[in-house]
Measured scan of single mutants.
Amino acid sequence: EVPFKVVAQFPYKSDYEDDLNFEKDQEIIVTSVEDAEWYFGEYQDSNGDVIEGIFPKSFVAVQG
C-alpha cells in the first residue's frame, strides 16, 4: 500500500533525468511501486522543493 516511508541506506547518484538522487539517511515517501526492483518517490530538499523520481529498492529500507 502506498504511500509509505523509506530511509536511504546508501547514497544514490544517477545521470538519468527520471531517477531520484539522494544521500544516505534521506527519508523518502514512496508514492508508487514501479516493479520488483524500483520505487517511485519524493522528498523535500533543503530549499523546500519537492524532488521526485525512480530509485532502486535495494538502496533503501522501509520504515516501521
Rank of each mutant, 00 (worst) to 15 (best):
T31P: 03
Y16I: 12
G48P: 00
D35Q: 07
D49S: 11
V60S: 02
I54H: 15
N21K: 10
D49E: 12
K5I: 13
V30H: 03
F22R: 01
F4R: 01
Q44G: 04
T31S: 04
G53H: 02
G41W: 05
D19V: 12
N21A: 08
Q44N: 09
F40G: 05
Q26E: 03
E1F: 14
Y12K: 00
A8R: 00
I29K: 08
S46V: 12
Y43D: 00
P11M: 08
I28A: 00
V50P: 06
D49Y: 12
V7I: 13
E37I: 09
V6G: 01
K5R: 12
E37A: 08
S14K: 00
N47S: 09
E42S: 13
D18W: 15
Y39S: 00
L20G: 00
Q63K: 13
Y39R: 00
Y12W: 06
V50F: 08
D19W: 06
Q9D: 04
I29E: 04
K57S: 14
S14E: 03
D15P: 13
I29V: 11
V62W: 09
G53T: 01
N21Q: 10
E52G: 09
I54F: 15
D35E: 07
P3L: 06
Q44Y: 10
E42D: 01
V2M: 07
E23K: 06
W38D: 00
D18V: 11
E17D: 10
A8W: 04
E34M: 15
V33Y: 08
D35W: 08
E27S: 05
D15T: 12
P11H: 08
E23G: 07
E42K: 11
V62S: 08
E52N: 13
I28V: 04
V30W: 02
Y16N: 15
P56Y: 05
D49H: 12
I28D: 00
N47F: 09
F22K: 01
Y12R: 05
Y16A: 14
N21M: 07
E17S: 11
G48E: 03
V60H: 02
F40P: 00
P56L: 04
S46D: 12
V33I: 14
Y39L: 05
G53R: 00
V30P: 01
V6H: 01
I29T: 14
E37H: 12
P56K: 05
E17C: 14
N21V: 07
E17W: 08
A61S: 13
F4E: 01
P56R: 04
L20K: 00
V50A: 06
E27Q: 08
Q63T: 12
V62D: 07
Y12H: 07
N21W: 12
G64N: 11
L20W: 03
D35I: 07
G64V: 13
F55Q: 02
V60P: 01
Q9S: 09
G53S: 01
V60F: 02
A8C: 06
V60L: 02
Q26I: 06
F10C: 15
S14R: 04
S14D: 00
D15I: 12
Q63M: 14
S32C: 14
A61E: 12
Y16C: 15
E42G: 10
V2I: 11
Y16F: 12
F4V: 01
V33G: 04
F55T: 00
D45K: 09
D35L: 09
D49L: 13
V6E: 01
K5T: 13
S46E: 13
N21I: 07
V2Q: 05
V30G: 01
E23S: 08
D19T: 14
S46R: 12
V7R: 08
V6K: 00
D18F: 14
F59M: 11
S14Y: 01
E27V: 15
W38T: 10
V50L: 13
E23A: 08
V33S: 07
A36D: 14
F40C: 08
S46W: 08
E1A: 11
Y39Q: 02
S32A: 14
D45L: 13
G53I: 04
D25T: 05
